[in-house]
Design a protein around this nucleic acid. Sequence first.
DNA 1: ACAAAAGTGTTTAACCTACACCCATGC
DNA 2: GCATGGGTGTAGGTTAAACACTTTTGT
Lengths: 244, 244
Amino acid sequence: MIQDHNYAPIAVTVDLAIFTVRSGLLQILLIERAEEPFARYWALPGGFVKTEESVANAARRELCEETGLKNLDLHLEQLATYGNPNRDPRMRVISVAHVALIPDLPLPIAGGDAVSARFWPVDELRLNPKTDKEAIPLAFDHTQIVTDAIERVRSKLEYTTLATAFVGEPFSLSEVRRVYEAVWGKAPDLANFRRKLLSTQDFVVPAGGASTSGSKGGRPAALYRRGSAKRLHPPILRSESDND
Amino acid sequence: MIQDHNYAPIAVTVDLAIFTVRSGLLQILLIERAEEPFARYWALPGGFVKTEESVANAARRELCEETGLKNLDLHLEQLATYGNPNRDPRMRVISVAHVALIPDLPLPIAGGDAVSARFWPVDELRLNPKTDKEAIPLAFDHTQIVTDAIERVRSKLEYTTLATAFVGEPFSLSEVRRVYEAVWGKAPDLANFRRKLLSTQDFVVPAGGASTSGSKGGRPAALYRRGSAKRLHPPILRSESDND
DNA sequence: ACAAAAGTGTTTAACCTACACCCATGC
DNA sequence: GCATGGGTGTAGGTTAAACACTTTTGT
């Protein structure tokens, strides 16, 4: 029965939505495809799951390949699986999409099977509303995947400590706040935000010392490192109108 | 490259975690396997994704087959994909797990490829803590999937209106509250709970009329139907100690 | 001195908690 | 009447929102 024609095997890929915060904007890494189908379209990086490899490991492997980062402390989580029969015109493929968050690092991004690769500010893609005539067309069903991935990141900042995954250690509280501003498009109130982070056990831990002031002056900021807390109780909610 | 031996096709299945609230308990539908591997073990219902069928449709098809329900307004959502190479000893299989919520209906559950099928109160499975010596062993990696599915249901009651998926229409507010009690193991405060439901636009809409009193008397309850609202702002949070 | 950025205090409103109380029905 | 379950009122505490204010640095 397993080899019944109704149950033919299906190719399995992982796709990666790799986000960073750069220049005050939430950005996502896309590659420009070299080959058909969707040649010259922008797409999520990804690849096939190998026969003896777990889906999670395939995602981790692709993440290292795409970013050149060997550090395994990058945040990587499964998003969802996309399995419409015609999402790839060549053959039946289902894709297990993942979301990764990385600090703003200069990345030696090598093309591989792509013409080029770069980070795109998510707003420039004009994915929302879906009817936007200016929207950048993405390959396959990647517009849907990117839309879902952005919403995942936005909502995860509400009830987890993941914002710190976007900054390098040590960091100031203002840097973390700028992450929220970039991801949500609106900065949480400064005073309330600081109180929330500092009153949540193990969200951040003091690293000692202070940052040097910028060239334009300003008081040096106290520095922190990521704490062990993973969740926020209660969450920091976006104002209701900003949600889907 | 697609047919490279490193990238051999992989079988894809859907598994279903079908929950209901019955006898005041959160229960999950399991089948007792007839054949090896894991013969006589309890497992989640599921099946292979057909070649020309989307993953979502495969899940919907299996749900109808297992429950005998033709109604398509049942809640069904994707949970996660489980893709460790050795999760099925016969071959490489990845499973896209789904969660379904159904009201407490008398179900004509036909065995199919199973010895038997029945709803299990989730507490009887003793999945938590994982080291519980009394835990019912489930087939494959289904202990993990069920654990994740239960947590998904518990957390979704916090910030969505999904509790009403467990009750038949029309329903009283007390019925919905008993859903929370069954799923969380603790009932929200009666007065505050009523205010929350009634003050959230379109969580419930009055159906008119009232239920008849039970045999032991009691005031008849006003009846409602599901509204169009999907999310709760702000959420109804479990007390922090109840969370993972 | 002034600008810039970090950090603090205070008032107000929202809302959750807890619990006491009232209402409608069957027996 | 009284048990049972539905439904309401209210006082107090916690927290978030808003915003004014202070501190520390570079030029």
